[in-house]
């Protein structure tokens, strides 16, 4: 089974979020970058497990300039066989999806897996867009994935229920919690990653559909009001009369 795993570089969870140029650009000063957690922990690791169980090739793809190579190496160290980098800024979700779709059309993948959401722009958009652009089915979120021949059995947890679905490949899925457990790259993987190929592909001509004009920080909290632990009636009263939530 040939699997394409889409990964995205994102600022580390603990990064300070600040902006420059009149709040129009993300301040990258001092920011550490990581592979987006659901791309790495769930999408990539499950793809590797499927390969280990039934053979095949796991290719990772990302849209970014050369400065994302360290994050690609990390994914290779975890065990991906090879990597493709579309040589361009990730302008918006549609732009990214269209680049990946263009590449995927020239190959014969059975599965394309994305993480269910990135922790930077929180869009959850790229997987569905790829599916539409290449005319495949799309299932989100996938919390469990088993593959038997060309049939995928998927558990999808949605509000209040778990749906058990069956769908033939080729398929695009978005990976969420439960699909796999995070793996830490070992020394052999890290050494091997140094010599694995990163294929650089020039981007197709695609127009983005949205643009970010400006960022702002959310209003600061007024500060916590401490309540006497012996006086829960007071808390209930405040929740009713002041906060008006009960």
């Amino acid at each position: 089974m040939n699997i394409l795993v889409c990964i995205s570089q994102v600022p580390d969870t603990t990064s300070k979020i600040a902006f420059t140029d009149g709040n129009t650009k993300f301040d990258t000063n001092g920011v550490q970058y990581i592979v987006n957690p659901s791309d790495e922990w769930y999408a990539l690791v499950r793809a590797l497990e499927l390969k280990e169980g039934g053979g095949g090739i796991v290719t990772i793809i990302t849209v970014g300039n050369a400065d994302v190579d360290p994050v690609i190496r990390k994914a290779l160290a975890i065990g991906a066989d090879d990597a493709v980098r579309i040589n361009s800024d990730a302008k918006d979700s549609y732009y990214v999806a269209a680049q990946i779709a263009e590449y995927a059309k020239t190959k014969s993948f059975d599965l394309i897996i994305t993480g269910n959401q990135t922790i930077d722009f929180n869009n959850a958009e790229v997987g569905g867009m790829i599916a539409e652009l290449i005319g495949w089915d799309y299932i989100t979120p996938c919390n469990k994935l088993e593959v038997n021949g060309n049939v995928c059995k998927i558990e999808s947890e949605v509000a209040g229920s778990t749906r058990v679905l069956e769908a033939p490949t080729p398929l695009v899925i978005s990976a969420a919690k439960g699909m796999a457990e995070a793996r830490i790259p070992n020394m052999r993987g890290i050494m091997a990653a140094r010599t694995k190929p990163i294929t650089v592909v020039e981007p197709a001509a695609v127009s983005p559909q949205v643009k970010i004009n400006v960022f702002e920080l959310p209003p600061a909290k007024a500060g916590v009001k401490m309540i006497d632990p012996e006086n829960m009636d007071e808390l209930v009263k405040l929740l009713h009369t002041e906060a008006k939530v009960i």
């Binding site: 600022p11 969870t13 979020i17 902006f19 922790i119 930077d120 722009f121 929180n122 983005p208 559909q209 949205v210 643009k211 970010i212 004009n213 400006v214 960022f215 702002e216 920080l217 959310p218």
Partner: peptide, 15 residues
């Protein structure tokens, strides 16, 4: 919309 898991808000223009 929210970005960076609620740590910032972005004004996005649809073109």
């Amino acid at each position: 919309k929210n970005v960076f898991s609620g740590k910032a808000i972005a004004e996005v223009e649809i073109t």
